[in-house]
């Protein structure tokens, strides 16, 4: 009996560690996208994108003033959807 309990506790711990590692991976990928569209396309990489014109100016200007905001929105909703799915995969969702 006692052995069984400790075994299930161990497996829960293991699954929690796997859940957390998966979460951290998703966060890192999302934050790379977050940085690339704002600091990258919006500021530092703007000269490299200057060839692509958007409504009287270039793509970098669009990313700095509107594009990055739209990507931020997409990222947050993607993360919420992906994590709620991950919660169920690992069986750690709320009752």
């Amino acid at each position: 009996m006692a052995d069984q309990t400790s075994q299930s506790a161990r497996s829960a711990e293991k699954s929690d560690a796997g859940y957390w590692a998966a979460n951290v991976r998703i966060i890192l990928v999302s934050l790379v996208i977050w940085a690339v569209v704002s600091f990258g396309f919006g500021i530092l990489l703007r000269p490299a994108l200057s060839g692509i014109s958007v409504g009287g100016t270039d793509l970098g200007f669009w990313f700095a003033q509107q594009g990055s905001i739209l990507v931020f929105l997409g990222l947050i909703f993607f993360y919420a959807w992906r994590m709620n799915k991950l919660d169920r995969e690992f069986g750690v969702e709320e009752e």
Partner: peptide, 24 residues
């Protein structure tokens, strides 16, 4: 003009940090 785009990206980009790193 463009140089003040910092306000637009800064005051919205923080919500990504909030949603991914703190809120839940």
């Amino acid at each position: 003009g463009y140089d003040n785009s910092s306000f637009l990206m800064g005051w919205t980009g923080g919500y990504v940090l909030l949603a991914l790193l703190l809120a839940p």
